[in-house]
Every structure is written in C-alpha cells, then in structure tokens.
Design a protein around this nucleic acid. Structure first.
Lengths: 192, 192
DNA sequence: ACCTCGATAGATCGATCGGTCTATGTCGTC
DNA sequence: GACGACATAGACCGATCGATCTATCGAGGT
C-alpha cells in the first residue's frame, strides 16, 4: 500500500462505482475502502466527491483505452474484440456479475454530476477513435470505420448491462457472435 | 388526473427513474411529482420504495413490449427496428437527452434493490422473445433468432446510454445503420 | 345517520448524506 | 531542532434519506 491517498481514492472510486453506481457510492464507503482520511478527498479533488468521480471516470476510460490498444496491437480487429468480450465474460463471472463498466455508471450519474457525464462521453469518444483507426487500417473508409466503432462500443456496453441484469454471460456470447460476423464481414471483402 | 395514487406513483417512478436513476430518485421527489400522500407508497407497494421500483420496472418493460409488438405488427422487422430507433432519437432530442431507459436504470440499481434487477432481467427477456419470434418468422432458425434478438436489445440499450453521455443522436444513427445491415443481411437470404 | 376504508397532510424517527472543522501525527527539508 | 506540507482521526454541521406514526377528510355502502 505505497500508493498515496489520491491514487487509492481513485482506485476505490472506480471499484465501488462500477458495482453500485455513482449516487449509491457514499463518501463513507470510499474512505473505508481506500483507507484514507476524509480531508484527503478535498485535498486532492476540487469539488469534493464530484471531482473525484470525474477523475475516476477519466482514469478508468484511459485504462480501458490502453487495454484496447494492447489488444489491437497484438491481434487483428476481430480477434481483439473477441479477446475483449472474453475478458468481460471472465470478469463478470468471477465477480458474480457484481461489477459493470464504471464509465457507463458515470454516464448515468444524473444531472447533479455533469462533469461525470462529460468524462464518460470523453471515454466513449476515445474508445471509438481507437477502434475506428483499427477498422480503417483494415480497409474501411473513415466514416464507415467510425460508425462501426461507435456501434461496437454501444453493443458491448449494452451487453454488459444486460448480462448483469440477467446474471448470464449469454448477452456477451451473442455480442461476440454478432460482432464477429458484422466486423468480419466489413474487414474481409467478400471474395466476389 | 382521475388515476389513483398507485398508477400515479408508477408513472412518476418511471419518469423520474429514467432521468435520475433509482438511487437518486428520492421518496420526496416521487410524492411531489405524483401528488400523492406518503402513506400511499406503503399502502400499495409492499416493501415501500423497493416495491414501487420493482413494479414500475415491470410496467415499463411491459409497455415497451407492447410498443414493440405494435411496431412489429405493422412493419417488417427491419422497418420496425428503424421506427424504434427513430422514436428514441426524437425522445432523446425532445428531452435534451435527459431521459433514458428505465429498465437499464433498474438493472443498475445495485445490490440493495435485487427485485429491480430481476424485473429488469424479465423485461430484457420479454423483449428478446418478442424480437426473436419476429426474426424466426423471417426465416431464421430458433437459436440464431434468439441470439440476434438479444444482441439487438444490447445494441440499442448501449446506444441510448452512449447517446445520453455524448448528448448526440449519432450513436443511434450508427445503431440504425449497423443493425439494418446486420438484420437485413440475415433476413433477406443472399440471392445466390 | 352511521361506519368504514382509502387518501391526504404532516410531524417525527433514527440513519446517513456530503462537507467543514480542529487536533494530532508524520514525514522530508532547511 | 524547527519548520511546513501533507496525512490521519474524528467531531460536528445542516440537509436529506426511507420509514412510521397520528389525525383529518371524503366518498360509498349499509
């Protein structure tokens, strides 16, 4: 536990928000989970809880973007997507479907935390750009690649939500199947 | 305003939860919005707020299912999906992206409201079955129709979340485009 | 006229919320 | 050793949470 209070708070915020949502995550929960003092929240984050949530969303978005970059760097786009779905599948199973995507939680935080919504929008845009570049490298024109990338983000996020609700990985299986078919169809031009 | 307190509470719960989420919707908000007495919540819903949220989720799921049935009854599956996306597009625009899907909100309500999560799972399953029947009627085998239907639900829900976060209808445009292509490809067998 | 039951209004409860405060402790740096 | 910056612990604030309570009102049935 050599990390400072700031990093511990961000990690705890990500962990708790992805389980309970922004509004249901209280300051007391954050302090207990991170082992920090109450004042540290206001020492490191302007705006108190709102600032912490915003920064946690930003960090979570960047971490997932790095993960995306790693996957796309070592596999073809379809293989990277399948690896991503597989990662979510094991994550949901191992946590008994308790955890979701922290960015989605931030996106639905509500009007009292507009900065969280903006940070979530940034994260979505970052992922879309990352995926679109990979799809464009696979031969798609820019707009088609962007549209497909945005759709992939939507489909995966929706599948995670549905999987948590139904406590089943089947939505992830369906997403893998349909996205593999869809993206694969775009990237490997039909051998007319 | 001839509706009784029970119906008013359910309607208000749907309206407020889809905007703010379950946990951020307080009892005071519900009472003010519905114009009911505090005791009416406990008169009509066992478990208080939890019971109300559960029933509101159930009702919202059934209403959307009826809407789905109407769309599928008067159009081919692809046309119905496009109409559904169009409805969400105008709804989000008219409300300045303030409202989302109440079932998603219930699905992410957290561990303190397990009944809401179950009701959300029921709603997702109902929609999936409804769509799967339409896809099967279009020629798909049962499992392919079910998988495609579940994926459509995921993709649309994810697009709504992303649209609210980015305050743009573009995720809905992308979903319409990709789903039209995907579902259309399945249902109209290639003219080999 | 009487009674009952649901609806309403509002006081009240303990618990918890986010935020601010003081006091103490613990470093590294002069 | 002295200092300043940060971390910690915890009291404290007003506000709000969901829930329970009493009291009043009104429509319908007998």
């Amino acid at each position: 536990m050599t990390a400072g209070p700031r990093d511990r708070l961000i990690d705890s915020a990500i962990a708790l928000i992805r389980e309970r949502g922004v509004h249901a995550t209280g300051l007391a929960d954050l302090l207990e989970h991170s082992g920090t003092a109450r004042a540290s929240v206001y020492q490191h984050f302007a705006g108190g809880k709102s600032g912490l949530v915003e920064e946690a969303t930003r960090v979570a978005g960047l971490r997932m973007d790095e993960f995306l970059a790693t996957l796309l760097g070592s596999r073809d786009p379809v293989g990277a997507l399948r690896s991503l779905v597989r990662w979510w599948r094991t994550t949901l199973r191992e946590t008994d479907f308790a955890v979701g995507c922290p960015v989605v939680a931030a996106a639905l935080a509500g009007a009292d935390t507009p900065s969280a919504r903006e940070a979530a929008a940034q994260a979505f845009a970052t992922w879309e750009r990352r995926l679109a570049r990979a799809f464009a490298a696979g031969g798609l024109d820019g707009e088609s690649a962007r549209s497909l990338a945005g759709f992939v983000v939507s489909a995966l996020e929706g599948a995670i939500v549905q999987a948590r609700a139904t406590r089943s990985v089947r939505p992830l299986d369906d997403a893998e199947r349909q996205l593999t078919w869809l993206v694969g169809g775009y990237l490997t031009p039909p051998a007319t």
